[in-house]
Design a protein around this nucleic acid. Structure first.
Lengths: 202, 202
DNA sequence: GCCATCATCTTGACAGCGTCAAGATTTGCG
DNA sequence: CGCAAATCTTGACGCTGTCAAGATGATGGC
């Protein structure tokens, strides 16, 4: 479908959305600048008016992925105000659920496709924002004795390693079929988190 | 340097080794079939006599990566026979250390670049072998009360998620600089594992 | 010892890719 | 109104993965 105007109007966002759709349909391997441009209805070199190179587009797509996760984490925090262990579980589940729902988007966001993140400050900012939210949850858990005391940023890394690792292993098919038959990924998450917490969580 | 003989002799392994070297020098993005072929001293289409496509070569490189990790895990198990918590720590460290030493090799092995692993049985076999070793370590830990009782394959997934997640987050630069300044990755690993164990490990 | 067969490797081609340069078109500011 | 800047198109370049056709050499049967 050709556009009416020569200028697109909101090409930058259109490219990001087109990229996310292509990721969902054809995976990381299917994501090319030319296909993204085509899907947005512009010529193959048009993206260069908005992104310096393919890495920059990937960084923008990744940032959007991170933004969605952060959004859900904050929603979980708000919904279970005053219940840190539930906040921990639901924030972790938000992360894992995003990975399961949109695997390619998760992969491109967290699989180190971005080589030099320093050059993508928006991505770094989103990353730090999310990690800050996790630290606050962990601190609340520590205050209630749900998690062991200790440096909260360190404990947050431990918890987030667990959650990120579970999501990654499931996505990469490294979790045995016999285990996936016995229980859901959410149940695995609950079990895993309970290995760390001093008090059982639901 | 041109070869003496028309036939290479051991091209298949040479291609795998060349690929590993290129990964170490130029990262995942630098790995192309043609460069691998060039480094092995053969023409650009020669690899197709040994690998059906690029994915197959990547699978072979990944399998070799997995093999090295498995080797080190078994070495750790042998070295600390009768000391399950130490076995757990050193096996985990073998994993993380491999990731830190050869980041691109680790990434390509575990970052889901292989789309259909079902078609690469050697990779699946190596994966199951390694996971079996982890299960045995976890069972030994459970028997000594180092880890909580429960289904050992599930507990192994929890432990391995933690380890895999830590390696991944560090590699992707998602661990804050302020934390990396305060302590080594090995210390983070020890701390994280101690969050899960009932008995402190060194 | 010779020859046929087969695996191995080379050469050449193709479409798709990321990227850049030059030019066309439109917008918005002075 | 006019001109500079932003946006988009067109065309080109080298590199990529892959395939087809042919060259080369090793191997096993006679």
């Amino acid at each position: 479908m050709p556009r009416k105007t020569y200028h697109h109007g909101d090409l930058k966002n259109a490219l990001i959305q087109a990229g996310i759709h292509i990721l969902a349909k054809d995976g990381v391997a299917g994501l090319s600048l030319r296909r993204v441009a085509g899907k947005a209805g512009v010529s193959h070199a048009a993206p260069y008016a908005h992104f310096t190179d393919k890495q920059a587009l990937i960084a923008a797509i990744s940032t959007e992925g991170y933004r969605r996760i952060h959004e859900r984490i904050e929603a979980a925090v708000a919904e279970f105000e005053g219940d840190p262990s539930r906040q921990l579980l639901e924030a972790a589940w938000a992360y894992v659920d995003f990975a399961l729902t949109d695997p390619a988007h998760f992969k491109i966001t967290f699989s180190g496709v971005i080589e030099k993140e320093k050059e993508h400050p928006a991505f770094v900012e989103m990353s730090q924002k999310s990690f800050g939210a996790v630290i606050r949850i962990v601190e609340a858990c520590q205050a209630q004795g749900v998690l062991a005391a200790g440096p909260s940023d360190l404990a947050a890394v431990s918890v987030w390693s667990l959650v990120h690792g579970l999501a990654s292993l499931v996505l990469e098919g490294q979790v045995s079929h016999s285990l996936l038959d016995r229980m859901s990924v959410r149940e695995m998450l609950v079990f895993s988190l309970n290995q760390m917490t001093k008090v059982p969580i639901p």
